[in-house]
Design a protein around this nucleic acid. Structure first.
Lengths: 230, 230, 230, 230
DNA sequence: CATGAATGAGGCTTCATTCAT
DNA sequence: GATGAATGAAGCCTCATTCAT
């Protein structure tokens, strides 16, 4: 994990003096990252070739290796970028809110819209499990961390029920991710209003502290059909 | 889609002594499938090589092509097998149950235990999105279909609230899948009791028809923190 | 060292049954070895390319890797072959001889003729120091071993003076090797008769037990010019 | 050959403060040569890269081409340097001596100590055969020239026997070079005293004019074992 | 059916060298 | 003179697939 923590978005270029060449290099690097985003999304990591990538970035093949050591490295860079950007968008959207309903909707929709707007980048993440499982795990653990923090706070304030926060964090991440896949990725639209409503309602009721009742009654009369779930 | 429907139900468990002539062939085919499961899980589809696969199956490389046309084909076969086996296990476990709480727990736990017991096969599915997105989508659509059917029924019987069933189906699939990843795949254990409890509680309350209240009040006092979700 | 000892000249091919295919494989392998000998000699190890090598062997590039794992591996195989062949020729030529003068001349000339006849293979050895220094060392250590054995015997029989046998072994190997380079490799001929005579005379006197005299006199009147020697 | 003659004697040891303008350039050039010596010795010519070389010299890659036209060129420069330095050391050590025994020992040991002290530079020479065979041959021919001159003199003075001087020159160069490899290069020490003694004794007797006897008797009773020699 | 040698396209990467600053 | 980004040719090697036995 620690190996990813350190390496963030700063320019890798040494740049002894602030020569203009640094700018040129940085621009090339950016072009490569953008091309990679597109090419990985279109072909997948393994079927994507460096030569296709550099063709799109309009640089020579060798130039790639001036900026990245391997195909894996630029891939990881993209995943980190995604992780960073998504988290920032979510925080900026959610943190100012105090009303629970708003926060939820906004956070959820921010995520969905992110997936939609940045389809390509988000696709890269999805393949990460196969390309670099450790990084993939790191991504979710970091996300879960923040989530857990938020949930604990809300539990302390009795805004939501006391449940295992990690369990709930993963549950919600999974939930949102699958909905994002179904509509933002597959269908390339935001989910229809009633879908958003249903999800929000499901989540809010699932967490609502008012729902607390004697355990005996909790599950007495409903049956959740579970024919197939994973 | 049709391309998967057709081939999906061949005899996976051949009679060892039925047809003396076809016997050896079928055994070889099985050995290849088992080797493929292990090799794909260990290396991933792209890094796995036919030669490694046949080495494990203890057959010559050429033998592979007697039984499968391409590397993709055996991969698809495995995904279909998974789809089939998982669905069967779930049905056998859940269908007899009438109590809602039991059904839920059992279904959820059946899934988790499936992932745990058949780690390798399940890993294959996870890579399917990158190898054959169409098949991946088909897998989830089929799963969702059954799920939706069950949800509709439960709604009709007023065992759960009336929500968009497809939305809920995907939400729950995502939820379970992520929990399965977190504990069954990463940690290689069943989730601890309190995690199972929290998830079950969250889901049941999320669906409980008793929770219905005037929309105005629903979300008045709690804030779900959404710093990062997916 | 030990890593080379074990791997000798046997066919690497597994060959469960003695199918004719084994022969075909062995023939291909031989063609590759022969091509390698020529190509390495012509271009040197580093400038030689697998594609040139396979072109000469009239097989596809990929075929190379059916028989050898890397470029280094086929190179090592050639060095081992050289080591083996040369040692055999020397033994067959020298062992039957009892007369010292004959043995010397014959051994020396056998070596020179070997270099001449198998120029290509011998060139491969010369590059070995740069390609695989360990193997190169092994080659000389093995050669020296045999040499030392012979020298000890001769000393025991008082056919030659008692000197450090390892020192003399390396001295003689160096001597012969340099002469081989000068005439057999550079000039592509056997050295002229008087060169052979001079070397033989030098070596025989250098070793002759009759030369033993009081140390004081040994070096009293001659000066060996040493302006440059390595 | 002529292509090496011309460039061989530039000022290798520039005055650090003589010409203020050229100073920096010459210093950079030196740094490159020193780095090259280390890098070629460590990796060998082919595996050494200009980028590694400039990294060690702490200059930019492009700087290399300000001072040398190609990778081969700096390599050749090093060989010439070696040739020059070694010859100088030998002359300085040997020329003042008159006693034959002293001269021999001193020359031989000077060479061995040179190899030991300047391991890296000497390693460069050893690879020269593969990198630039013509230069390699030139190196030995020059060395042999001087050697032959010295031998002729000694023969004229009847300090040593009349033998083909070129043959003896190459014989002795080979002898010394192999001993240098065995001890100075491989073992990184000077050879033990008895090894030096044995070699010296062998060489002196080999050349000693006192040994002259009727040809019939010369080799009548000793057998030099020659099992393996190159 | 089974075998395993042969194929050849294609990928990643290295690296000497150039050139604008 | 020094810099370092850019170049593109070339190499090694992998691997899915074919085919003669």
């Amino acid at each position: 994990m620690s190996k990813f923590e350190s390496a963030s978005q700063e320019a890798q270029v040494p740049a002894r003096k602030d020569v203009p060449m640094k700018d040129r290099a940085e621009a090339t690097r950016q072009r490569l990252l953008e091309a990679a985003e597109a090419v990985f999304a279109e072909f997948g990591f393994y079927r994507a070739s460096i030569s296709e990538l550099t063709r799109r970035a309009r640089v020579a093949q060798g130039t790639f290796y001036v900026h990245f050591r391997t195909k894996e490295e630029i891939f990881r860079e993209l995943v980190r970028q995604l992780s960073h950007d998504l988290r920032r968008e979510l925080q900026e959207a959610v943190v100012p809110l105090v009303d629970r309903k708003d926060a939820e909707r906004v956070g959820f929709e921010t995520f969905l819209s992110f997936v939609l707007r940045r389809r390509n980048l988000y696709s890269v993440l999805r393949e990460c499990e196969s390309v670099d499982p450790e990084l993939y795990q790191w991504y979710y653990e970091r996300l879960a961390e923040g989530y857990v923090r938020g949930l604990r706070q809300a539990m302390a304030r009795e805004q939501i029920r006391r449940l295992n926060p990690e369990a709930i964090a993963y549950a919600l991440m999974g939930l949102f991710q699958m909905v994002g896949m179904r509509w933002s990725l597959w269908q390339r639209t935001m989910p229809p209003e009633d879908v958003l409503e249903s999800i929000a309602s499901f989540v809010l009721h699932g967490l609502d502290p008012a729902e607390e009742r004697p355990p005996g009654e909790t599950t007495s009369d409903a049956t959740v059909p579970l024919e197939g779930e994973g």
